[in-house]
Nucleic acid binder design. Structure first.
Length: 503
RNA sequence: GGGGCGGUGGCGAAGUGGCUAACGCUGCGGAUUGCAAAUCCGCCAUUCGUGGGUUCAAAUCCCACCCGCCCCUCCA
């Protein structure tokens, strides 16, 4: 079956073919570790995870890597030659405040003035969140790449770019990439040099551009002894530009000049990915860096753009622990909510959507239980000759149409299959992609189920007793007590069972 | 100003030339229940942003217009 993906590079849906039939190489722009990752970040990361799992579903071996940006970049170093406050320093301030308020556990970060400790703290938090949400790459330490551990590779590439005439040292001592040396600059984003000049609404000219040959030239290395994280280099002690790490780490870890897929959020199309292409192709001379560039659109929250000032800026932890919606949310529910609509449309994160997703997770989970009971836990290997799996696969192959794929799965999950072992095999393959029923996570997430389950069990028994004695007033009171504790109550002749609500 | 994405029932969301426009939620009717919840059965868009056009046939193609969103500035 042909797999077709939308490629930002060509603005069209194309049939996917890896460079090397034996292995798909993909790179995903990961988080900056100055703060906890939010659900918008994770929409993009989970989108990458779904691509990876889809390719694996179709039998490809996938080498997926993700970077961790732990270099302390400046708050507005993207357009000019660096400026504003260092993000790591800003994080240090926040960290100190959080330690005082108890938001960050006392022993977690010994010295907030040490940027490496801050980066380490948030990196660990990110990987925990990523594992909780079933991001496969987060379970592969070798494929999580840290910028600070690859500075030497970046310096090598910068030297190559200078040598090949793609970069120069400006009069201010900063190493810049010369966009005019790369004719394809702008091909990915549509922001070609002539358009950038005429269309930027005057923003470009306001900046201090005097050291650059072209206003769109971007920084590769800046000597700055005062920067909080700095390294020695032929161009002075300082720090790398914010685009260079991805070009270098992708090539180094994936061991190819041309990779298959590069993913990120839509905001990264320009300038970040445009600059990565210029760097990589400038250094390698290849006619491509990644063959497919895939971008997830932004997430909205209750119809509004997520922003700190609106107070709708939710981290993964906020949602799971109930600070976003007032109800604790199972990780599988959040995962499904973030992957279930098409990645190329803005998705609206809502409380109602979360409840819908909870219903779907419950249905799939219940279906699995029924199948396991009926088949004795045995599953038959399933292939695409099964109509449900075929429809599921066709939807996925059509540019990751998860909604369409669910449209095939959900009615089936409400049916009673004649061959439960085969159905279980089908469900297993479906769940290899969706990873919501069950969600394979770090052990930590299941823990909070047990804390009050003894009490709930007792209440269920009391409820049965009251019902047996036809004391319905008491029975109703107990039932609302269990419900209020966040459980769904199922009464039956076999006895009452309480099930924790997923969201 | 430049570069993109999208407008389908109360809500979310598939479908890109031709069966009665998927699927999920909500709602309604029924079974079940002490009453509920859960579950099961059934029903719910003559219509696809607007106006034209092409065609035997269009939500799907063409033209025009309206609206929303994103990027071009730190951001996934």
């Amino acid at each position: 079956m042909d797999i077709r993906f939308y490629n930002t590079l060509t603005n069209s849906v194309q049939t996917f073919q890896p460079v090397d039939a034996g292995c798909v190489r993909m790179y995903s722009c990961g988080p900056t570790v100055y703060d906890f990752a939010h659900i918008g970040n994770f929409r993009s990361f989970l989108f990458a995870d779904v691509i990876r799992r889809t390719l694996e579903f179709f039998g490809y071996r996938v080498h997926h890597v993700m970077n961790i940006t732990d270099v302390g970049h400046m708050t507005d170093d993207a357009s000019a030659d660096g400026g504003g406050e260092d993000k790591m320093e800003a994080a240090a301030k926040r960290m100190k405040a959080d330690k005082k308020s108890g938001k960050v556990t006392a022993g977690a970060v010994e010295n907030p003035d040490d940027p490496y400790q801050i980066a380490e703290y948030y990196t660990k938090a990110f990987l925990e969140d990523a594992q909780t949400l079933g991001l496969r790459v987060a379970f592969e330490p070798d494929n999580i790449l840290k910028a600070t551990q690859n500075i030497d590779t970046m310096q090598e590439m910068i030297a190559t770019l200078i040598q090949r005439g793609h970069a120069y040292v400006g009069p201010d001592g900063v190493v810049y990439y010369s966009v005019e040396s790369f004719p394809d600059y702008g091909k990915l984003s549509g922001n070609t040099l002539d358009r950038l000049l005429t269309g930027a609404g005057g923003r470009i000219s306001q900046e201090n551009q005097s050291a650059k040959r072209h206003p769109a030239d971007f920084m590769l290395w800046k000597a700055d002894r005062h920067h909080i994280m700095k390294w020695d280099s032929p161009w002075g002690t300082g720090y790398p530009g914010w685009h260079i790490e991805c070009s270098c780490m992708a090539r180094k870890r994936l061991e190819k000049d041309v990779i298959d897929i590069h993913t990120g959020g839509e905001d990264l199309i320009f300038p970040h990915h445009e600059c990565e292409i210029a760097q990589s192709r400038g250094a390698t001379g290849a006619d491509a860096f990644a063959r497919f560039w895939m971008h997830a659109r932004f997430l909205m929250v209750e119809g509004e753009k997520m922003s700190k000032s609106k107070g709708n800026f939710w981290t993964v932890r906020d949602v799971l622990e109930g600070r976003a919606t007032g109800v604790k949310v199972h990780p599988a529910v959040l995962r499904l909510e973030l992957i279930k609509s098409h990645y190329r449309a803005n998705m609206n994160f809502t409380r109602k959507g979360l409840q819908d997703s909870a219903g779907v997770v419950k249905r799939l989970t219940d279906f699995r239980s029924k199948l396991e009971a009926a088949s004795g836990g045995k599953s038959e290997p399933a292939d695409l000759s099964h109509p449900v799996l075929k429809e599921f696969a066709e939807a996925l192959a059509d540019d990751l149409n998860i909604a369409g794929a669910l449209g095939a799965v959900l009615p089936w999950a409400a049916s009673v299959p004649t061959d439960p072992a085969m159905a279980l095999g089908v469900l297993n393959r479906i769940n290899d992609v969706l990873a919501v029923a069950p969600l394979a996570t770090a052990e930590s997430s299941a823990a909070d189920d047990s804390d009050d389950s003894d009490g709930i069990l007792q209440l269920c028994q009391q409820l049965d007793k009251a019902r047996a004695g036809r004391d319905y007033a008491t029975a109703d009171r107990i039932r609302s007590e269990i419900t209020a504790a966040g459980y769904d109550v199922k009464t039956s002749p076999q006895g009452t069972v309480a099930q924790k609500r997923l969201a």
